[in-house]
Amino acid sequence: MPSSLLGKGAISIRNVTKIYDPEGVNVMAVDDCSLEIAAGEVCMIVGPSGCGKTTLLNAIAGFHSVTTGEIYLDGEMLCGPEKPLAEQGADRIVVFQHGALFPWKTLVENVAYGPIVQGILSKKEAHEKAEGMLTEAGIGDMSQKYPGEVSSGMARRAEIVRALINDPKVLLLDEPYRAMDALTKSIMHEALLEVYDRTKVTIFFITHDLEEAIFLGDRVVVMTTRPAKTKKILDVNIPRPRDYQVLSSEEFRLLVNEAKDAVHEEAVKAFEAGERELA
């Protein structure tokens, strides 16, 4: 992987507050949240449903504005008081909950889309590069198929390839493996770790799954129920590269328990508040 990427992609979230105002009813989704994510870190965000995790991700990606506070990427302000809505850019690419591969494009066309529309590569070059990256990810055989023709696991893998072809500084993953069965999930985890070990791209990963969070992450950030704040930050000091042996280790079990306690408390609060989930 190009060394130019190393040490890039540090995100600094400073006192971010987000208030939605649907029909004049103020809903505070994020309240004075601060978080420093180092370059090349895998930062896992865990919290109850509808707590405002996705709001934070949307603010970084530039889909939603922030009400107050600032977000910096490598020291440059993405959004802040003067510019509440960050510009969308290929340096921060989102992998969505239900997948967002364009159904009308084959996998290789999907992957080649970014470089083509940015005018970086010609169509032919982009297709060649996409083909190469798909093969690297082990789904080269599938490159000419449409997303509807491949399994969800392959589609999600292709989507991560589609993100990586843009040389992003940050990958923003919003519960990408949510609807998958445990077996597929484990394969996807290994694939993602393999990608991470290769690229050292900063990963901002939202999930509900604590084991997933601890297995993949350098740090696990437990959020409070809405409005979201950082409740607890767990450092995962399990050495990389990790494999599935880790799951049965004592260290892993302790971390899971620690996280579980924190999350459970918030989950109970969220449940009792009976709040409707915010997208």
């Binding site: 990606a61 989102v94 239900h98 529309v117 843009n166």
Partner: peptide
């Protein structure tokens, strides 16, 4: 999601229209 994905990959308005809205 398709519009957001395309925008975050740097699609211009024209690309958004011709490559996403039209086939969609």
């Amino acid at each position: 999601r398709y519009l957001r994905a395309a925008q975050s990959m740097g699609a211009t308005q024209w690309h958004l229209f011709s490559k996403i809205i039209l086939p969609g």
